[in-house]
Design a protein around this nucleic acid. Sequence first.
DNA 1: GTCTATAAAAGGATAGAC
DNA 2: GTCTATCCTTTTATAGAC
Lengths: 207, 207
Amino acid sequence: MRKVGRPKAQDSAFDRSLALKKSALDLLSRDTAGKVTIKDIGREANVTTAMIYYYFEDKDDLLRSAIEYAIDNSFEHFDKLSQDIEHPAALIHEWLRTHEELVEPIRKMMKLNLDYKMGKDRTDRTDQAIQRFYDSERTILLDCVKRGIRLGIFTEVDPESIWVIVSTFLDGAMVRSGIVDGFDVRKAIVVFEALLWDRLGYNSKSF
Amino acid sequence: MRKVGRPKAQDSAFDRSLALKKSALDLLSRDTAGKVTIKDIGREANVTTAMIYYYFEDKDDLLRSAIEYAIDNSFEHFDKLSQDIEHPAALIHEWLRTHEELVEPIRKMMKLNLDYKMGKDRTDRTDQAIQRFYDSERTILLDCVKRGIRLGIFTEVDPESIWVIVSTFLDGAMVRSGIVDGFDVRKAIVVFEALLWDRLGYNSKSF
DNA sequence: GTCTATAAAAGGATAGAC
DNA sequence: GTCTATCCTTTTATAGAC
């Protein structure tokens, strides 16, 4: 364990707080909180234990911050998607494809959410971050279906039902891929998409 | 902490090993492994720490046994369902209803599976228990759809696709109910069922 | 801001009596 | 089979120098 002379203040380009959140996220998704020690996290992020307490109140604070970080990441990703794509069917298609592409990070986020929600160390701040994420997911999908109906490209369906089915199915695909060896996320999403277009009365030849 | 005189050998009616597995299961589903201590489990099951090591090799052994216990439970439940119900549509309907009814235990099992699979302390025995469960789920649903088609009550669909969609959706409903406050499992399953009967060309008026 | 060293607590596991 | 007491290791968290 060789130590380099004197420590140098970190410039903001390499934020140690961020590095810690990333490392925590990674370790937590591979193992369960409580088995992951602050030393593990520190080692992974190349930060000493004492520094963790400089940046965060305690272990729990770091863990919650890591979850929030994961949520914010996913949030931005999906928010961008909804801003970039106009066409309702195209948006839904990309929505599905994105889940397929980002299984790993999304599954990590979900596992952390589940651990957090079923645990007992909760805070309003983190609860709200999770709520905000799912609310925005709902708003985006709901709007999308409504617009599709208004534009006449989708059958007159209940948007709320479609939203529930789509987002619940996707959650299922994310976790199942983490539980069942050999589960084919891509295939699952493909067959689901076919069912969805069928229900929406949309001709998906273009995809 | 009052102690009753001399210990009395437990008769098989109240198996301590079983009590420990149940308590472990309960605590693990509420919190993450590693945060749950053997002392916690012992306290919950009214068994001393030392006794845990009499019944199990070590903490990990107890934890894995608890998971297997949870899986076996669910397995029996679904297996019974498939043996009791002949009619394909009725079986699927009951399948959905059972998930609705047993959200809690099923969600616990899923969380444990996820923790276990994403962690690194794995054993063949436990891996196989999980695999067996999902395999049997697949077999049952697949057979069910095939029979429905053969009987002419379902449209000619690809059974494999239906199985993937149904079981993935249900997994999603189970976890989401643990993550999103106020998620209405019942409603989610109801709207999904409607979609399913639609796809299968089945008139579900009877339910 | 960063590190080393260490205190304080908690947890896993065992010894040994009954 | 069961319990009490305890050992030893790991872990969280802090003190204090630079």
